[in-house]
Design a binder for these strands. Structure first.
Lengths: 226, 226
DNA sequence: ATTCCAGAGATAATCGATATTTCTTCCGGG
DNA sequence: CCCGGAAGAAATATCGATTATCTCTGGAAT
């Protein structure tokens, strides 16, 4: 909790932003369980802040589909289920395919270098340090798309990424990065992107997602995760 | 302002929801101009409510891309420009195409009837009553997609719809529905959907969007709208 | 035994006030 | 005449308290 808190939340002084990032992290990592009631007062004490920043943060998380607001009855974390997971997976494949094609179409040297750098940073951290790895993993994936001149699309991708990663955290140890050679998959995507081969990069990217995704959907379907 | 306020905002007692719907309507219709500073106190008086509901509503609108939050410096309505408009148009075409295909793939009699009903209601109102027409126009378009079992996708479509309609309001009288036979276009989309012809329906739908869209983008490019 | 209602307690939503930050204006120095 | 900085004004962000709403328990009536 320390590292990511510092990375994301400690930077700016706004209590709302701090609460937003902390809560998002708590939900994405599963510290706050799916469907859990989010009592304002409890969170207020836990994050050591007032009710207003909490409420505002929860409002923001609502739009990220991580929190549900029940009118006059407060907030709770979003429920999880197979259908939801499959939807996220399908949307991610469709939207990232789109974004990646655009990104590569606009490719520049500067972008290429940013992607290589992001990849290197991800490679460098131990996958055992999950929180840290996830941070750089997301940074790498988003850097691939970053060159698509389409802020709304990128925001959608980022949101879907977080929703997806939440399921990965929920699966927890059931899912093991080491099983497959993730590293090689990333390298393949990077190479294709650098080579400006959008079709190849996209198909590798989507394969990358589906591989983990289908396995996870299986776990969910078996009721191994709730 | 009366009708839509009653339709959307008067329904539930929550001050936050009320503020959210009212503000969204004010922004979408252009009563609050693009880039305009949104002073909490001003809005508080205008909507006759406290600061907390206003702030929460603005937070929600931020996630709809209708409001920008500048940390420690308050809120302002989202800026408009051609690039933004083109992005919205492109995303709408891509996402609605996807949603429409899914919706038709899941077609049922009940859905078919809802679409027909929504179309009828839209036909029935005078396009001169803009607010009212827009309400039913959106209802019709969303009903087409409604059968896609993909809540997140539908939410994206709905958001993009609102962003797009905002530009239409901004164009105002420059844009005239009567110019083209909009009615016939809607009928064509409806017919294709009812016939379960996803390809035809989608191509008509997208044509429908691009027609208005390209014209509007032209206006924007000429600096006719700011 | 079951259902319905009342009341107490808990919780959410909202308000009013304070503290903090940013913006503006105006004065003095270069 | 222009630039920089400090004081005052304005606006935001936050807090603590009040009000409205919901939930749960227990008892009475059917």
């Amino acid at each position: 909790m320390n590292l990511v808190d510092k990375d994301f939340a400690g930077l700016d002084g706004s209590a709302t932003q701090r609460a937003y990032h902390t809560l998002r992290h708590l939900i994405v990592t599963g510290d706050l369980k799916p469907g859990e009631k989010l009592k304002i007062d409890g969170l207020r004490q836990r994050l050591d802040t007032g009710a207003s920043p909490i409420r505002e943060a929860l409002s923001l998380l609502t739009s990220d589909h991580l929190v549900e607001r029940i009118d006059q009855r407060g907030f709770r974390t979003a429920q999880v289920n197979v259908e939801n997971f499959r939807e996220i997976l399908a949307l991610r494949c469709a939207l990232e395919d789109m974004a990646l094609h655009q990104s590569i179409a606009n490719a520049t040297l500067a972008w290429e270098e940013k992607v290589v750098l992001a990849h290197h940073r991800m490679q460098r951290v131990q996958p055992s340090d999950l929180d840290r790895f996830e941070t750089f993993h997301k940074a790498f994936h988003m850097s691939l798309l970053d060159n698509a001149a389409s802020p709304i699309l990128l925001k959608f991708c980022s949101q879907l990424y977080d929703l997806n990663i939440r399921y990965r955290y929920l699966a927890g140890k059931a899912l093991n990065y080491q099983r497959r050679d993730i590293s090689e998959e990333h390298q393949g995507i990077l190479d294709a992107a650098v080579a400006r081969d959008a079709t190849e990069a996209s198909s590798r990217l989507i394969g990358h997602y589906r591989m983990t995704g289908d396995y996870l959907a299986g776990l969910l379907g078996d009721g191994a995760i709730t």
